[in-house]
C-alpha cells in the first residue's frame, strides 16, 4: 500500500499556481524527503494532503483514503508537524500534548513524549514563553503522540539548534524503524541526505527529480572538474593530460584547460601539464556534490538535464587550492 499518492494535482490560488500537475508516491515505511526552495509549493502540497487546502485538479489518496471525505480518519493515524504554526500561549507544554492525546483518543504517556523531544524540564511552563526551537519540539511531541502510521513534518529543523537537529534526526530514524512512514520537507539538502530513503525535488510547483540518495549520487557522478590556467595551451599539453589515467574529458579555451577526472588524479594532471612544458599559473577544482545537483534543479535554467546541469550551474561552490 502507498502512504501518500498524488496524481496530477494542481492548486491555483488567485493569481498564482502553487502546484502544477504533481505526481508523487510515498511508499509505506519509507522516509521521503521533500525538497525545494522556499515558495516551491511544498507547504501547499502538504496542506492538500491534510485537506487544509482543496486541489483545483487531481486526485489524492492518503493511507488509502480520500482527504476530501475522510480527513479526520487520516489525521487519526497521522502525526503532523506543521509549518508556520503558533502555540496556545497560555497553555502549558504538558496540556498541549495531553490535548493531542485526547484528540486522538489515545492513552499516551505525556511525560515520556515530552522527555523524548527534550522538553521534560519545561513541561509545566506556558508555551507562550517557549523559544522558537522549543515550540518546534512541542509540535513534534504532539505529532508523535499515539504512534502514528504516517508522520508529516514540514520543515522540522526550522528554529532548532544543532543538538536539536541531531535529536530530530534520531527521532525520524527511530520512527522509521518502528515502521512509520515519514514524509518531510526541507529547503536544505543536508537535512534529508542522512535519513531519507528517497527524495523528491520540487521547483515552482513541479517535481523536477525523484530518486534515492544513491541514485542522485550516480547522476552527479563522482568526478571532479579541474580548471587549470597555464601560460600557453599547446597540443602537447592536451595530449599529455588526456593520457593521464582517470581523465575522461579535456577541453581548452584561451589559456584554461578544463579537465574531468577522478578526484584522486588531480595531482597527476597538474604534474602532466608541467611535464609537457607548460607553466601552471592557477587552478581550481570543483567537487560535484549533491548540493550542486540540488541547486541545479532548483535554480538552473533547464532542470532535469543531469550532471551537465550541475557543471554549468552558476552558483556552484568553487574550491581554490
Amino acid at each position: 500500500m502507498t502512504a501518500i499518492e498524488l496524481r496530477g494535482v494542481r492548486k491555483e490560488f488567485p493569481g498564482v499556481t502553487a502546484v502544477r500537475d504533481l505526481d508523487l508516491t510515498v511508499e509505506t515505511g519509507e522516509v521521503y524527503g521533500f525538497l525545494g526552495p522556499n515558495g516551491a509549493g511544498k507547504s501547499t502540497t502538504i496542506d492538500v494532503v491534510l485537506d487544509l487546502v482543496r486541489p483545483t485538479a487531481g486526485t489524492v489518496r492518503v493511507l488509502g483514503r480520500d482527504p476530501a471525505t475522510e480527513s479526520v480518519a487520516i489525521r487519526r493515524d497521522t502525526g503532523v508537524l506543521p509549518d508556520g504554526f503558533s502555540v496556545y500561549g497560555r497553555l502549558s507544554g504538558r496540556r498541549h500534548v495531553q490535548f493531542a492525546a485526547d484528540s486522538k483518543a489515545v492513552d499516551a504517556d505525556v511525560d515520556a513524549v515530552l522527555e523524548r523531544v527534550g522538553l521534560a524540564d519545561a513541561a509545566d511552563r506556558a508555551a507562550g514563553d517557549y523559544s522558537k526551537g522549543m515550540r518546534q519540539r512541542l509540535a513534534l511531541a504532539m505529532a508523535l503522540v499515539g504512534e502514528p502510521d504516517l508522520l508529516i513534518l514540514d520543515e522540522p529543523s526550522a528554529g532548532l539548534d544543532p543538538a536539536g537537529v541531531v535529536r530530530m534526526r534520531e527521532i525520524v530514524t527511530a520512527e522509521a524503524e518502528r515502521g512509520a512512514t515519514v514524509f518531510f520537507s526541507s529547503h536544505v539538502l543536508g537535512q534529508v541526505e542522512a535519513v531519507c530513503d528517497r527524495v523528491g525535488i520540487l521547483r515552482a510547483g513541479e517535481l523536477v527529480a525523484e530518486d534515492s540518495i544513491e541514485g542522485l549520487r550516480e547522476t552527479v557522478g563522482d568526478e571532479a572538474t579541474l580548471e587549470v590556467t597555464v601560460d600557453v595551451v599547446t597540443d602537447a599539453v592536451q595530449t599529455a593530460v588526456s593520457g593521464v589515467e582517470g581523465v575522461s574529458h579535456v577541453s581548452a579555451a584561451d589559456a584554461t584547460l578544463t579537465v574531468n577526472c577522478a578526484p584522486a588524479q588531480k595531482t597527476a594532471v597538474i604534474d602532466a601539464v608541467e611535464a609537457a612544458g607548460a607553466r601552471v599559473e592557477d587552478f581550481h577544482t570543483r567537487e560535484a556534490s549533491l548540493e550542486d545537483l540540488f541547486l541545479a534543479y532548483t535554480e538552473g535554467e533547464t532542470p532535469g538535464s543531469g550532471p551537465d546541469a550541475s557543471a554549468t550551474t552558476a552558483g556552484s561552490p568553487e574550491v581554490s587550492e
Binding site: L50, L52, V72, A73, R75, R76, G79, V80, L81, P82, D83, G84, F85, S86, V87, Y88, F99, A100, S103, K104, A139, M142, A143
Partner: peptide, 10 residues
C-alpha cells in the same frame, strides 16, 4: 497559525 496545530489533530 494555531489553527494549523488544531487541524493537524483529528
Amino acid at each position: 497559525g494555531s489553527l494549523k496545530l488544531l487541524l493537524s489533530l483529528p
